[in-house]
Design a protein around this nucleic acid. Structure first.
Length: 283
DNA sequence: AAGTCTTCCTGCGAGC
DNA sequence: TGCTCGCAGGAAGACT
């Protein structure tokens, strides 16, 4: 899926065309994505005004004037495209309906918000805005990596005694919410930590060094508009650029970027996910 | 309890 | 050109 930077980019793209606007019609073209849609979802969206949009972890939260919040998760292949509205200097006309356009929100100003998800690992749900923290997909999430609650003290304490590889620990959304496979690989390279190291056996000062590096990588990726791989696009259809900044992700066999290293980047599988790293620079 | 594996889907590129 | 295979940004739930 789009990870935190991609979700943030999508949210930023759709917020200007949704905030304050009425959803004139919600077109729901199938009964489910990963899970069934909430009961009467189309009716509960139609006629509602959008109060604002937020992001929590990899979820986009759309607050409605019905005291309900629409939760959107992009899964691995979910895209949200805006059409019929100006975005920056560009106007994007409505495209022809495409395969896997599962939900289309027709805004009263003429804009359309189209949710397309080939693999259907994404999700949508509605919940009372006041009880959003209790939602089963939200309640167990760890702190936001760009927020104040995520700091060196927290991470050191949270990883203490953990027997799982640091790679798996950073992918655990209960520990820190929003990181995915790409950015964890990049962060561990920057930190010089081998992804196979047991989380609880890394010196505290090295664990602490991860915190600013995580923030740096995410900020850089957000500034670049996210990373475009396979399915992901920004909401205006443009590509993000951070993939050009990958130092290890998807670079198996290519030379390490560290000056005077040039060792081929390794790929291993950890808990079913590819880990890319430099066996020379990461210990 | 904690850690790991399997599974949900479709699409695409590599290799033959 | 057309097949089969492996792999893909997530993460819940079933295992061990």
């Amino acid at each position: 899926m789009p990870e935190l930077p991609e979700v943030e980019t999508v949210k930023a793209g759709i917020a200007p065309v949704m905030t304050g606007q009425l959803i004139a019609k919600a077109e729901v073209n199938r009964p489910d994505l990963r899970w069934p849609f909430p009961e009467n979802m189309a009716d509960r969206l139609t006629g509602r005004r959008v109060l604002g949009l937020r992001r929590r972890s990899k979820y986009i939260l759309v607050d409605l004037d019905s005291a309900e919040t629409l939760l959107i998760h992009l899964g691995m292949s979910g895209r949200i495209l805006v059409s019929g509205a100006a975005q920056g200097a560009f106007y994007h006309p409505h495209p022809a309906p495409a395969k896997h356009d599962h939900v289309v929100l027709h805004m009263d100003g003429g804009a359309r918000i189209t949710f397309n998800d080939a693999r259907r690992f994404g999700a949508m749900d509605l919940m009372p805005t006041a009880a959003q923290d209790d939602h089963w997909l939200i309640r167990d999430l760890g702190p936001e990596p760009l927020g104040n609650a995520f700091d060196e003290t927290y991470l050191v304490a949270r990883l203490k005694g953990r027997n799982t590889p640091i790679k798996s620990a950073l992918l655990d959304q209960r520990i820190v919410a929003g990181l995915g496979n790409i950015y964890v690989c990049e962060v561990l390279f920057r930190a010089g930590i081998d992804p196979r190291r047991k989380a609880g056996q890394i010196a505290a000062r090295r664990v602490a060094s991860l915190v600013p590096l995580i923030r740096d990588v995410l900020h850089e990726a957000i500034a670049a508009g996210g990373s475009s791989l396979r399915d992901y696009r920004q909401s205006d259809g443009e590509l993000g650029y951070f993939q050009h900044g990958f130092q290890v992700y998807d670079r198996e066999g290519a030379p390490c970027v560290t000056p005077d290293c040039a060792r081929p980047i390794s790929r291993i599988v950890q808990s079913g996910r590819s880990s890319f790293f430099c066996a020379q620079c990461q210990r």
